[in-house]
Nucleic acid binder design. Structure first.
Lengths: 340, 340
DNA sequence: TTGTATGCGTTATCAA
DNA sequence: TTGATAACGCATACAA
């Protein structure tokens, strides 16, 4: 029971293989009668075009790859929830633009690096990931060349002259903290990751600092807490803040997860949100709506990001020059902060 | 600047193209010297094997497709969060088993149906989706044949003799409700979807009924609330329950999202959870950990599900017979319910 | 409008 | 151990 080929169709339809190909591709150069016979035969034989042969022959259908580099530092061992709507949109948008999409999740035991270096399943690659990209770039010597079409999300520090797409982290943080200040908060704690190569967090911290500075507020190092990326880390950070006894009336968490963890600890200790302490997150994950009070946040526009990523790779494939794109963020105010 | 082929490599390395192929595929039938020269040339030319040609010639590397049929009935306009860890695991596991993976999200404007009928980008297909599958099956006449390798997640009612993989919804619901009863709850409301073709919900409802029956508890139709799939629907359902004035001391929500929405409404009206009302969800989404109190739930084992799905398609591709698999669920008790 | 013939870049089968 | 050479299944230039 072998798969039927276009020759089998041709035989059954009583035409040449070339005509089968034309009919299947909707060419105008085929009579209505022949087309119908071909289609009937295709139906009968359950014929499907072999995608590999088609792509090999006509370099028309492009394939993109999405490589997700996860640090798996989060609670549930799964993919970073931030990437979910982004990947989803990449899939949709790439489909609209006529690309086929291959997805791969990095995994320790899985040397996709070697695979992707030696073989080329895609004309262009989109890298998503919060993990230190530099390490990978070095392993991927094959990808450090101008003839490879790849685009990186959000890790501009390590992009080494390559195109990247990234949110305006500094501006988003600035807006968020400025909002808290306008609502009357004066002692705003910052929760963020200072170790590692998470450049986004540095930018967010810079936005925090600029907002304080522009408002003429003093900077207090005791309000700056190093915090890893899980819920528990966020809770621990809030706990540490409370334990030190330093006064604060707001928390700006550099990710929603940290913020939600912090809220959990505040609530546990009987501190009212936003009554005593306002909380602001970053990312605008969907979970912001499920916690109570609902968490205010800085939305990263994953829809636009996804489209820019795809468009950028597409442009690279076509040989165009592309530059890094900064995507604006948007403040989303919910119950977790209000005017004092 | 054309892509180098294996012939270019051969020329540079001073060997035949056949030797290049052997070297690249790690054949033992190639001298160490030749292998080194080939590898060096590959490095210099940034050579990558053309995956299409390779797959065309050696029908070795199989490709699987994941088709996500979403009803987009959720708040977020994005993919159902339940599928996220599942897709993630499918990607990982399929990769481990040597499959390439193509993913497509159903979208109204996007007639992937036609595409997937006429072309065959994959040897096997995994359907995920809560949408009425029957409609699609009809559009996919090409897929209603024994020579197509596809597996469906969770929609056994419409699988029409095809293989499907599904959680033990009835048993999971039974366990959950039985747990509530053992904790002393007597008036347990059921929130679920009764319209449409969501067969899972019927099964969960059956489990609920059986648990009541086995415990000798009376069945009260006023405790059964029709509820759609969003947070707001869950909240509305809880509100309706409260407004009717019917007494209840627990809610079994047939999805976590409904349950979280219900919790929001209960909290808003000052009803203590689990003090006055215990709440139990279904799915064990990650968000169960972020809400307060943390939501108890029935875990669907998405990891196992993903692996069974991949294994099933793989088996079909190899020509084996496969039967439907029921995957056990697991009760996860958190703060939202406790003994009265 | 149709058919013939060629090539896409591999892997696999021979014979050397 | 290597090198010619033949497929793989399709799309397309060219001839009819």
């Amino acid at each position: 029971m072998k798969r039927p080929t276009s020759f089998d169709l041709a035989a059954m339809a009583g035409v040449s293989q070339a005509t089968v190909s034309r009919a299947l591709n909707g060419s105008a150069l085929v009579s209505a009668d022949a087309r119908r016979r071909v289609m009937d035969a295709a139906q009968k034989l359950h014929y499907k075009v072999d995608s590999n042969a088609r792509k090999l022959r006509s370099n028309k259908i492009q394939t993109l790859a999405v490589l997700v580099l996860e640090d798996m530092e989060n609670d549930h061992g799964a993919i970073n929830p931030f990437f979910v709507p982004m990947i989803s949109e990449i899939i949709k948008y790439a489909g609209q633009k006529g690309f086929e999409l291959v997805i791969s999740l990095q995994q320790e035991s899985n040397n996709w690096g070697a695979d992707y270096c030696i073989s080329r399943p895609a004309e262009g690659i989109i890298f998503l990931g919060s993990k230190d990209f530099e390490t990978y770039a070095e392993n991927f010597q094959g990808y450090n060349h101008a003839d490879d079409n790849w685009v990186v999300w959000g890790l501009n520090r390590t992009a080494r002259g390559k195109v990247c797409v990234v949110s305006d982290n500094e501006g988003g943080a600035f807006d968020a903290v400025t909002h808290l200040i306008r609502q009357g908060r004066r002692r705003i704690a910052y929760l963020g990751k200072f170790s590692g190569d998470h450049w986004e967090f540095i930018e967010r911290y810079q936005g925090y600092c600029r907002a304080l500075h522009d408002a003429g507020l003093p900077f207090d190092d005791a309000l700056k807490v190093d915090c890893a990326l899980t819920l528990d880390d966020g809770a621990a950070a809030a706990g540490k803040l409370l334990d030190t006894g330093v006064a604060f009336d707001a928390i700006f968490a550099s990710t929603d997860i940290m913020g939600i963890g912090a809220m959990r600890e505040l609530t546990r200790r009987g501190i009212a949100i936003p009554g005593q302490v306002a909380v602001m997150g970053f990312d605008d994950l969907w979970v912001c709506n499920t916690v109570s009070p609902r968490l205010s946040s800085v939305r990263q526009d994953t829809t636009t990001a996804a489209r820019v990523l795809v468009d950028s790779v597409a442009a690279l494939i076509e040989g165009h020059e592309i530059t890094t794109t900064r995507i604006p963020t948007q403040l989303v105010i919910r119950d977790s902060c209000r005017t004092v």
